[in-house]
Amino acid sequence: MLKINERKNTTAWKVFILIIFGVLLVISFFVSNSFGTMKLTNKDIIKAIFVDETGAKRQVIWNIRLPRTIVACLVGMNLALSGTILQGVMGNPLADPQIIGISSGAGLAGILILVVFPEAIHLMAPAAFLGAIGASALIYALAWKNGIKPTRIILAGVAVSALLGAGITTLMVFYSDRVHGAIMFMAGGLSARSWPHVKIILPYTIVGMTAAFVMADKLDILLLGDDVARGLGLNVERTRLILTAIAALLAASAVCVAGLLGFVGLIIPHISRIIIGTNHKYLFPASALLGGGVLMLCDTFARTIFSPVEIPVGVVMAALGAPFFLYLLRKVD
């Protein structure tokens, strides 16, 4: 165990793990594009993307599989990075966007657009972000008592998540004639995702990931404890607010294209932390790479295991994530 911990502290080890996760991402990309009703080889995929301009394989890859694969990758990256930030900010490995209520805020706003204002579907992304920010503000207001403590944020987040979940259920009851789309949204899925969805999520991914990497050093300082961080000149409360806003942006962008997809932000950061350590300069890219790769593989499994029937990828993630959550629960003091 000592040798493993010593190895995790070396830069060479961290770079090696990032390369491994990058290779996994590339493999997942080709697996996602290979499997389906039409089986394609890696050569077919490359030709369809870069060489061919016509033909059935080009149409399948370019119009169906490639945009869905990219969306899966970006959603996995965003949720994993959001979970990594929240676990760092709150000092709790059980924190993730869905558990503490940020995804529920984005989800309530998304459901509101879907079932009440379907003609304003183009406003889904900003509405989801505002919902996530609103949920974050409510969580902070409820948790504030002479400052913010991570435990209080977790408890307030669970309460807010339950409240917003009740709001989602209420909307579904009042608009039962439009409930099908809402049910798929709540389950979390990537069916029929195409290039417009890529255009929706990509700008938020770029902005959110850039901001997260800029704040990585400050999050490391925050992990030293509030008193030590203040002694080093860090504005603790402002840093927490900025990091939470970044996590909300990443989670909201994922929710608006994939629905309420759970557990990605819980299990991916924890696995990455075990392997690569707690230095967020390396943990952030590791979580993003692993999150994108895992979600592409899970989505491939979800759409092919019972072909031609497709199950939401959220069901697969729940099957993987629930046991892992129970494992974490038993490990936390």
Results as ranks from 00 to 15, higher is better:
Ala137Gly: 01
Asp217Val: 05
Ala143Lys: 11
Glu119Lys: 12
Leu114Glu: 00
Ile274Lys: 11
Ile206Ser: 13
Gly292Ala: 05
Gly189Glu: 09
Ile19Tyr: 01
Tyr282His: 11
Gly233Val: 05
Asn146Ile: 05
Ile100Gln: 07
Met90Ser: 12
Lys3Tyr: 11
Val179Ile: 15
Lys281Cys: 12
Leu138His: 04
Leu24Met: 15
Lys43Met: 14
Thr69Cys: 14
Ile153Val: 15
Ala120Cys: 05
Phe213Tyr: 15
Leu190Trp: 07
Leu66Phe: 15
Gly147Cys: 05
Val89Cys: 01
Ser191Tyr: 13
Ile111Arg: 05
Ala286Lys: 00
Gly134His: 01
Ala247Tyr: 06
Ile271Gly: 06
Val31Arg: 01
Arg240Leu: 06
Ala245His: 09
Arg68Phe: 09
Met124His: 07
Val264Asp: 06
Ile70Val: 15
Glu237Asn: 14
Gly105Thr: 01
Asn5Pro: 08
Ala245Tyr: 10
Pro97Arg: 09
Leu79Asn: 08
Leu164Val: 00
Pro150Asp: 10
Ala56Lys: 14
Met317Phe: 02
Pro118Tyr: 08
Ile305Lys: 03
Met90His: 01
Gly314Ser: 04
Val160Asn: 06
Gly233Cys: 04
Pro196Tyr: 13
Ala135Gly: 02
Ile148Asn: 03
Thr244Tyr: 08
Gly181Trp: 00
Ala162Met: 15
Lys331Ser: 15
Ile17Lys: 02
Asp96Trp: 07
Phe263Met: 04
Asp226Thr: 09
Ile268Asp: 12
Leu81Lys: 02
Ala120Trp: 14
